[in-house]
Each structure stands twice: as structure tokens, then as C-alpha cells.
Design a protein around this nucleic acid. Sequence first.
DNA 1: TTGGGGCTAGCAAACGCTTTCCAGATTTTT
DNA 2: AAAAATCTGGAAAGCGTTTGCTAGCCCCAA
Lengths: 380, 380
Amino acid sequence: MEKRKKRRRNVTAAAASGAPATRRRPAAVSIRDVAERARVSIATVSRAVNGIATVNPELARRVWQAIEEVGYLPNTQARALVSGRSRMLGLIVSEITNPFFPELVQEFENLAVAQGYEVLIGSTSYETLRTESLIRRMLQRNVDGVAVMTFGIEEDLIQKLVEREFPLVFVDAGPDLPNIRVLKVDYAEGIRQGVQHLAALGHRHIAFITGPLRLRSAVARRDAFRKSMAELGLVVPADHLVEGTHTMEGGIVAMEKLSQLDPVPTAVMCSNDVTAIGVLHALYRTTHEVPADISVVGFDDIHLAQFMLPPLTTVQMSCKDLAAAAVEALRAGIEADHPKAARKEWSIPTRLVVRQSSTFPRGSLPALAGTARRGGAKNF
Amino acid sequence: MEKRKKRRRNVTAAAASGAPATRRRPAAVSIRDVAERARVSIATVSRAVNGIATVNPELARRVWQAIEEVGYLPNTQARALVSGRSRMLGLIVSEITNPFFPELVQEFENLAVAQGYEVLIGSTSYETLRTESLIRRMLQRNVDGVAVMTFGIEEDLIQKLVEREFPLVFVDAGPDLPNIRVLKVDYAEGIRQGVQHLAALGHRHIAFITGPLRLRSAVARRDAFRKSMAELGLVVPADHLVEGTHTMEGGIVAMEKLSQLDPVPTAVMCSNDVTAIGVLHALYRTTHEVPADISVVGFDDIHLAQFMLPPLTTVQMSCKDLAAAAVEALRAGIEADHPKAARKEWSIPTRLVVRQSSTFPRGSLPALAGTARRGGAKNF
DNA sequence: TTGGGGCTAGCAAACGCTTTCCAGATTTTT
DNA sequence: AAAAATCTGGAAAGCGTTTGCTAGCCCCAA
């Protein structure tokens, strides 16, 4: 009877079935409403929306005006269904409460959204079960690609994703397969700068608190440290390498272990900044001064690092760079006509940022080291 | 020729059109593959999957086995299309790099996933433009409900969402409309505890660094402070209320302002922990001791607070409670048969956590205050 | 043996959109 | 002016599900 022919918009259904368990919102305005209003077919609306050139400019104008008037928003689900592409990207991180990741997430999201993608975030919390369900969720939601930024990952996770021929991005290392891309972080450079910085100040007993050694990147950082020390002819006794957990708690525990040594190392490098914050805290508890008694160097350069007491000397791994590379690599995998579609590796630089948590080892140049920050006068 | 009758699975299409701009992944295994394998109709598979009782147990077994064998995962998009519900929740925060929010996000996500929902996260970064596009994205993705945890929100944003009759959850305050629920945070209690704690220690000159006063919650916190002070008969001079930004940078700037005062307040309360961290940093720079020279109290009790130097006395607002309330309130709005469907307000308690950044004001009981943490002996 | 009443499985429509195909309209060519 | 070529818009199929309806089956009573 009305213009709208075949459509029923489940009016009858809703009326018939008494009190459905889950209420259905009033149907949103669809492409048909626009077509009606603009007095064209839905095909024309679709073409206008998607900017296809063959549509008459006058009609296109009418369509756009109608869209404006009825407040039409294309239904992404329906689009995804027919196009086979959801325009969603998965981003898997290990622990969203580690301050490094929110920064990464934010950058990643900004870039993805700018390219018209949505981001589905998942954090594994290092649990296999969660990871499992994470993958399933991503697959069900039909994401176009997944960036696995857990800095080291369980192999079976990779397997599942690889099977589906998803575009994938890993950090540090991943299997060599056609639609897998890898972000190679140049740990060596930044860590070498850190070690050389400490050595130049006069440190010889430098300890390193690693991340959880299941993580590839944690191993990579430790190895970079060893190598850098070896280059300078410095030995690293086994007890100067302590395994941490990339958390503040881990940093505290590790530092407590290091305090038992005799002599206590004069400098400690950490596999990430959060660990370093834990170390600062442990030293505070035992009333050691940083950097006068012990120098501390972090890794990541999270925003917080510069606000620590004292501001943390750390190796910067730009999460801007990392996020940018991840998004671009994913797009390269998804969009066949992407300029860098063939590129398989993307490299991420690191560099030292010197702040105030590192100085000469205790005992050397005592006058200088001791007075560094106690010079100011209180003004009340 | 084959069993698969009507289906073409765009093999021909892919072959015909030369190099499509965006490659389409091989179609995932669908309900039809399962149906074929189990030698039943797709309707039966659907019913088996959804646990509808009328299906023959023998057939159901065959279906589940087939699902296992072919590795079938239902396509969420298609489901959403027909059911009208996407099983996605929107979560809007103001600034994901503020450490409070990742904790909130994590809790929220855990709970949502446990209930079978996916979470779409957006952070506004306090920009209207971003917020605008955020809303559009959420609408397009057809989320079932949105939790706006920005702690104070631009009115026009509300408007857009309200129009669509989305289930919505706000913090602190929101319009009184049928499908809008509000999480009422009891700022008064926690802040009163904080003020009384400081007053009991002997502080009379207590300053407060607010959040950005556009945010309703920032105003609420400030007012709670004023009220608590008034209750004790303490005056709050205008220059003891400084507007911050809920960031570390803001805390630094605000503290610098407070240091100009004569006399400098003996205690500073902050509208959130991040601001307090900035304050600690500012005081460190000017070589003031916390808490000997000045006591600092935060708000939120982020995980980091206990690892500050010194560990931060702060008002705890449990993000576990907050997330739990948000998810439950959303579900109450979405699922008509939810036990608390009618409930419109959910209250969130706050309470003081005393750590070591607060003590007696300088000048009183000097012996005690001064030696608090310098007692330990260095063990090397 | 046959009719009726439960059940259950399968068919087909619908969700909102994109895309292909084709017919009608318009323009160009001879 | 007629025929060919080009363009444009509409109709329809299909994406992977769910679900109302119907047909088939079995069983039991008449």
C-alpha cells in the first residue's frame, strides 16, 4: 500500500511475540530512507556514498542532501558482510596497565581511525586462556588484520592466526610467511648507548634486570646488554642478570636481590621503565639515594619517566614510530595496492635519553656527585 | 553438479575482475560448510549452535562434531545484522594515557567479555572534533550501549547519543531519560576523610588543585573539598584553589603557583593522582621534601600511587567497582529481562588510603617529622 | 488400516548493504 | 533520419545468520 514494498521492518513480529528477552532498538535510518527521500534507487544512493563517478551530479546532490536530512549513517555490519572486509584491526598487547601500552594504543588508534579503521583491543595478561579467547573474538569479528604487540608471544597463538591467512604484524620476530610482517626494533643501538653512557661515567659493575624471559623481546634486550658489555670488555657475572617481570613489583624484588650482592652494583639497567620505577621505589625504601648511590637506567621512555624522582635516564623506543609502522604494515598486508605491499620488515630505532637517574659511581668524585641536587635553597 | 547449489563464493568474480584494489580473503568457513558436513540444513546448525531445545540430540552431536572438524566460528557481523544487536559496548574515556583509565578499561573489558560483549574504546583527548567522530563510529558500528566515563562531558555529545535511544551510562550526572543510567561517585566521603586526616595532623593551610573545571566531576571534587573544609571551620582562600588539568604537567604548573604564596600551604590535595605526581615532581625540583615540608594527597588511587617516592596518600575510587557498575548498568539498559532493569542510579564509594606523603605540618613536632624515613642504615 | 496430534527438520524470507547486469535514455555517427 | 555507441539508473542477487512456517515423520487411538 505504501511506497515501501517488500519491507516489513518487523513491526508484526515485535507485536506478535510477547516481551522478547532482549529489546530491539527502533531500526536506524537505512539506505532505503535516503533513497525514498531523494527519489532515487538505493543503488544510486550507494554509488553516491561510495563516490562512484558514473552518478549524475544532480542526483548525487539530491542524495547527499537527503542523507543530511534524515541523518543517515551506513551500517558497518552490513557493509562488512557484503564486502568481506570489516575495516577493523586487532591490536593485541600483553598488559594494558603497563603505561607503555596505553601510549601505544592511543597512537595506533589515532592512525587507524584516520585511515578509516576501527581498533579492537585485547590484552593477554600473559594468560594462555585469555589469549585463546582473544583470538577467537578477533576471528569472529572478522578483523582485517592483527598487530601482535606483546613483545614475544606463544607459538600456538601465531598458529591459529596464520591458518586463517590474516595479515599479521609482529614485533621483533615472526614466521616467514607471505602475509606476515615484522617490526624489527633495534634494541642493540639504544642499549649500547646506555651501557656506554654508564661506562663513560666510570661504572664497571652494571647489573641488568630482564623482563620475563618467555618474551622474545626480553631476551633480545638482555642479549643486547650482554653484547654491549662485552664490546667494552666488561664482564657480566651471572648474578648481575636478574629476571624481572616488566612490572614495578618485579623491579622491587629484583632490586632486593641485587642489594644482597657484595659489592652491590653501582648501576642497574632495566628491561623497561616500569621495572626501573620499581627499582627506584626499592632503593627509596632502603634509603639509598639515586643517582648518588646507584645509577638507574630504564627502557621505553614512557611519558612518566621524566616525572620520576629523579627523572629517569632511559632508552627511548618511540611508540609513535612503533604504532605508525604497525598500522602501515597492516595496511600493506590488507590493501593490495598499498605502495609498500611487498615490504616485509620495518625497523624501529632506539636511542638513549639522559636524565638525572644516572651519574658517576659512588666513591668517585664524591663532591660532584653528592651535591648535584641539594643546592637549591628552600624559599619558605 | 555439486551439493552446494546456489552458492558461488565469488570464484568467478575474483577471476574476472583484474586485480581488485583490496584483496578479499578466502571466505571463512561458514554455517553451510558445517551443514554439509553434518548432513543437515543450515537451520538445524543454527539451532544447535544456539542451544535450542527442539533439535534432536543425535543431530546436535553430529553438528557439534562437524563444527569441531571444520573449525567453524559464527560470523558476528551476520548475526548482528539479523538480530539487530551487535553485542558490542562503547567505552568513552577522556584520555587513555592517564593511568587511571587503562585500569578502568581493563576491568571493564574483562567483565564485558565475560558477558559475551566486545568493547569499542574511544578516547576524546578533550577535543570536540574527536568526540564527534567517536560518536559517529560508535553509531555506525551499532554498539548496543555506551558508557561515557569522561567524568564530565560536552552536552552536544549527549544529545547525539540520546537521540538514537541508546542505552547510556554516565558518571556523576546525566539527563533524566528512560534509557540513561548514572553512576554516582560519592566524592564527598573520600574527600572528607582526606581533609579530616590532614586537619587531624595539624594542617590549617590546605590547598586544592582541581581538574579542568569544564568537567563536572572536577567541579564535584572541588566542591566536596570546600564543603569538607567548611565543616571543620577552615577557610579556603581563593588562591588556595588552583585549576589544574588532571595531568602531571598541570600539577607542576599548579604547584609552582602555590609556591609563590606566603605562607606556602602546608598540604596540597589534588583532584587526581596524576596531578599529585606532578606536584611531587615540582617539589623535588625545588628541593622540598615530601612529606616533611609539605604533605600531598591524591585522588583515584591508581596502581602507581603506592610506588611513588614517597608512596602517595590518596583517596581511593575503585575502578573495579566503577567498571562493574558500568557494565551492569549497561546490561540493565540493553537486556529487558535484567534483574536491575529499572534501576537508574548506581553508587560508587570512595575512601582514604593513608601512605607516606602526608604527615604533620612543618614546624610542629620537628623531631618526629624530620626523621621519619632517614633512619635506615645503608648496607654498603 | 486410517485419521489425528506431536515433534522436528528444512525451506525461505529477512536483516542492510554492495555489486553486477541489463534496459532504457541519450548522444553520436553515418 | 536511422542506426550505433555511450551512459545512467533500477532491479536483483548475494553476504552469513536467524526464525516463522510448513511438510514430513512417527505414534497412537479409533
